[in-house]
Amino acid sequence: MNIQWKGVMPAVTTNFTAEDTLDFKMFEKNLNYQLDAGVEGVILGGTLGEASTLLEEEKQDLILETVRIVDGKVPVIMNIAEQTTRGAIEAANKAEANGARGLMMLPPMRYKATDFETVEYFTQVAKNTSLPIMIYNNPVDYKIEVTLDMFEELLKLDNIQAVKESTRDISNVTRIINRFGSRLKVLTGVDTLGLESLLMGADGWVGGLVDAFPEETVAIYKLAKAGRIQEALTIYRWFLPLLELDINAQLVQNIKLAEVGTGLGTEYVRAPRLPLMGAERERVLAIIDNSLKNRPTLPEYKSL
């Protein structure tokens, strides 16, 4: 399956039971809602997926189950976030063997690599997999920026095809398009810049709150791409207080609470994460409750 690198792609949460095992029943319910809403890919094992807490056998089971559920409707993309080049290559090979059709890749974890080391890291992984790759560029959280000059080198490799643009600099979408045209597909990775990035020409949106609100997210994307900007903007303005829950250190807990609100998940997280407590929990619940009370009626968007 070729990946078009467009549309809405949820960075899905990993559902757990009260006994801290993988909850595939709830996971399947959420995925089916994503597919019904019109997402164009599913991304596993990111920050929202709590990948750093998953055992290797759990990651394998997660890919296999996701491949079964989506049944070829959309590509399954596995996030790679490793400390070593060797580990990243092994993770990429396992993902491919288990049915993933693409990779999202972070720079090396824990070590602040130089520009040369970062390019070499991505290069070696790309040379050792046939899967297409989206580079996750998030210097705010991971302290390494993949610059345009670095992408110039990386794009010599055919299977490096897209960027999850999370620099928080909206003008970077235009810089990328001006320099690379359609050679490097741009997917925004910051929920609070979702519509703005699409209007600047981004090809897609890797979302977080889409996990709880798939229809609203896909509707914004479809309406924006169809030129129905005012309709997209109306939904987006309603959505913004929820989207701001994604740019927060407790984004996993926040989004899982939102999933509870829409019946698409549970709030079980894996320690050391713990469910929200006290005043912060009440603040987040108030945002979710108010948004649900004022949830907009969506236009027919799926055929756009």
Rank of each mutant, 00 (worst) to 15 (best):
R175I: 01
T129G: 09
Q124A: 04
N128R: 11
L64P: 00
V190G: 02
L55P: 00
A212V: 07
I220C: 07
G72E: 09
E231F: 00
I170G: 01
Y111S: 08
V146T: 14
D149W: 02
L209C: 14
E145H: 05
L54W: 02
Y111A: 10
I63C: 04
E50I: 00
T129P: 12
N128L: 05
V70Y: 03
E65G: 00
A279N: 12
V70A: 02
D23H: 08
E300W: 00
N178E: 14
W238R: 12
Q83T: 12
V140K: 14
I63N: 03
K302P: 07
K94V: 13
R295D: 12
L55D: 12
F180C: 06
S303M: 10
F180R: 11
G38R: 03
D211P: 02
G194Y: 10
T297P: 01
G41N: 03
E215T: 13
G49H: 07
L274D: 06
D149C: 02
N159D: 06
D149M: 01
I235C: 02
V269C: 06
K73P: 05
E153F: 07
L199C: 13
N137Y: 09
T174M: 09
V260F: 10
T167F: 07
A224C: 13
L44I: 04
N98Y: 15
A51P: 00
E215A: 15
N79P: 00
T85G: 11
L285M: 15
A81M: 05
P241R: 01
F116M: 11
K256L: 02
V186Y: 10
I220A: 05
E280P: 02
L251A: 14
Y236K: 08
Y33C: 11
R281D: 00
L243A: 15
L148Q: 09
L243C: 09
A162Q: 10
D169Q: 14
L245E: 08
T167Y: 08
T147G: 07
K94A: 11
E96K: 13
V8F: 00
I176N: 03
E65P: 00
V269Y: 12
V39T: 13
V173C: 12
V269H: 10
N178K: 11
N2C: 01
A18P: 06
A100E: 03
K94Q: 13
V74D: 08
L276K: 13
A258V: 06
P132N: 07
R273F: 12
D141T: 14
V70T: 13
L233R: 15
D141E: 14
E50R: 09
E231A: 04
E152W: 01
L209F: 10
A37V: 05
L154E: 07
L274V: 15
L199N: 12
D169H: 13
V42P: 04
N98E: 10
I235Q: 01
N172V: 05
R228W: 02
A97S: 15
G72S: 06
Y136V: 01
P272T: 06
I43C: 09
E50T: 03
E117I: 03
A91L: 03
F122K: 07
G201A: 04
T13Y: 12
K156T: 14
E56I: 04
E153V: 01
E40W: 01
R110K: 03
A51M: 12
F24S: 03
